[in-house]
C-alpha cells in the first residue's frame, strides 16, 4: 500500500497508509483465535425478534408533520447516497446522476445536496470529475459486488482500482458463505485487508442482511465489521430481497450505539435497498433518533442507499413548499 499513486493525478502526494491495529480496547484479544472470536460473537446477547418487530412497529406509527416533516425531508435528502448499480450504466448516466446530486431540485435553490453518489468502481472516475468541488462524496462498490464470490486478491485489486479511480468511500460486501459456515475470522481478516487497501477512503461494510437469515446473525456481523475497522455498516446490496427492513436497521443501530459506549469509536449506519418513500425514510430517522441517538442524525453517520427515494422526497418537499400535490412530471427522470 505504501506509495500508491493516484492514476488521475500522478503528481499527487502518495497516500499515507492508515495502520490497522487490532480491535479497539476492550476487545483487543477477541480475534486472537477462531475459537475465541466465535465464542465472543456467539456470546453477544440474542435478539428478541418479536420484540424488535414490535418496537419498530410502534416507532413507525409516530406522526411527523409540518416543520418536523420539513426538517426530516431535508435531512433525508442530505443523507442520500444516490445510487446507480446497473450493468447498463454508462459515463453519461453517471454524469446525469451527478448533476442530480448537485441540484436535486433544479427549481429550488434551497434544496440540499445529497451526501454521495454510489457507482461501480470503473465509473468512479467519471463521478469524481463530475462532482469536483462540490463536497459530494464518490462511493464505489467493490470486492466482487454484489455476490462477493471471488478470491481475496481479486477483491483487493477491485478496491485499489476503485480508490485509484477517485472513490473516497468504498462499499464492500462480506463473504456471506464464510460467515454462515462460521468462519468468522476469515471474514474478519478480509475486512481488515480491505480496510488497509482502502487507504484514506471510508469503508462501508455491506452485511447483506437478506442472506443472514436471523437478527442474531445481523448483530454478530455488525460487531465483526466494526471490530475490523469499518466506518459504516450497511444493510444490503439492493440486489437481494428483503433488503433494508426496520428491525434489521434497529439491530444495527443498537450495535453501533453499544460499540461507541464500549470503545468510544462511532460507526455509521446505511440502510440500502427497498426504501422508496418519504414515509419509509422518516421512519428510519425516527428509529435512529430513538435507538442510537441524535448524534447519528447527520450525513456523516447515517445514509440512505437509494435511487427512487430521492424523487419521492423531492415530491413531498414540493408539496410542503407549494401547498398542493406534485407529480412525477416535476422531478427529473432517472
Amino acid at each position: 500500500m505504501i506509495g500508491m499513486t493516484n492514476l488521475l493525478d500522478p503528481h499527487a502526494p502518495a497516500t499515507s497508509p492508515r495502520t490497522v491495529d487490532e480491535p479497539p480496547a476492550p476487545y483487543g484479544d477477541v480475534t486472537r483465535s477462531d475459537a475465541a472470536f466465535r465464542a465472543f460473537l456467539h456470546g453477544l446477547p440474542g435478539v428478541d425478534q418479536v420484540g424488535a418487530e414490535a418496537r419498530t412497529t410502534v416507532l413507525a406509527s409516530r406522526s411527523i408533520k409540518t416543520t418536523a416533516k420539513a426538517w426530516a425531508i431535508d435531512t433525508a435528502i442530505s443523507m442520500v447516497d444516490l445510487t446507480t448499480l446497473e450493468g447498463a450504466d454508462t459515463p453519461g448516466t453517471v454524469r446525469s446522476l451527478a448533476a442530480k446530486a448537485r441540484r436535486p431540485d433544479p427549481g429550488d435553490a434551497t434544496c440540499p445536496q445529497v451526501a454521495a453518489v454510489c457507482v461501480y468502481g470503473d465509473l468512479a472516475g467519471v463521478a469524481r470529475e463530475a462532482l469536483a468541488g462540490t463536497g459530494i462524496h464518490v462511493a464505489a462498490v467493490a470486492t466482487a459486488f454484489p455476490s462477493g464470490r471471488a478470491s481475496r486478491e481479486v477483491k483487493l485489486a477491485d478496491v485499489k482500482d476503485a480508490v485509484a479511480n477517485g472513490a473516497d468511500e468504498i462499499d464492500m460486501v462480506i463473504d456471506r458463505g464464510a460467515f454462515l459456515t462460521g468462519r468468522y475470522l476469515d471474514v474478519y481478516e478480509e475486512v481488515v485487508a480491505v480496510r488497509e487497501a482502502c487507504g484514506d477512503a471510508h469503508l462501508k461494510v455491506i452485511l447483506e442482511t437478506g442472506e443472514l437469515v436471523t437478527l442474531d446473525n445481523v448483530r454478530r456481523a455488525s460487531w465483526l465489521a466494526m471490530l475490523a475497522g469499518a466506518d459504516f455498516v450497511k444493510t444490503s446490496t439492493g440486489k437481494v430481497s428483503p433488503a433494508a427492513t426496520l428491525p434489521v436497521c434497529l439491530v444495527m443501530l443498537e450495535a453501533v450505539r453499544d460499540f461507541r459506549a464500549a470503545t468510544g469509536r462511532q460507526i455509521g449506519v446505511k440502510p440500502a435497498g427497498g426504501i422508496r418513500t418519504t414515509k419509509d425514510a422518516v421512519r428510519h430517522l425516527v428509529l435512529v433518533h430513538e435507538t442510537a441517538g441524535p448524534d447519528w442524525l447527520s450525513p456523516d453517520w447515517f445514509r440512505f442507499g437509494a435511487s427512487s427515494l430521492l424523487n419521492d422526497l423531492l415530491l413531498q418537499r414540493q408539496k410542503l413548499r407549494t401547498g398542493h400535490y406534485s407529480g412525477p412530471d416535476h422531478v427529473t427522470v432517472d
Binding site: 414540493q318 401547498g323 398542493h324 400535490y325 406534485s326 407529480g327 412530471d329 416535476h330
Partner: peptide, 9 residues
C-alpha cells in the same frame, strides 16, 4: 380544490 391544484392531474 386538491384535485384542481394537483400537479399530476
Amino acid at each position: 380544490p386538491w384535485l384542481a391544484e394537483h400537479a399530476d392531474v
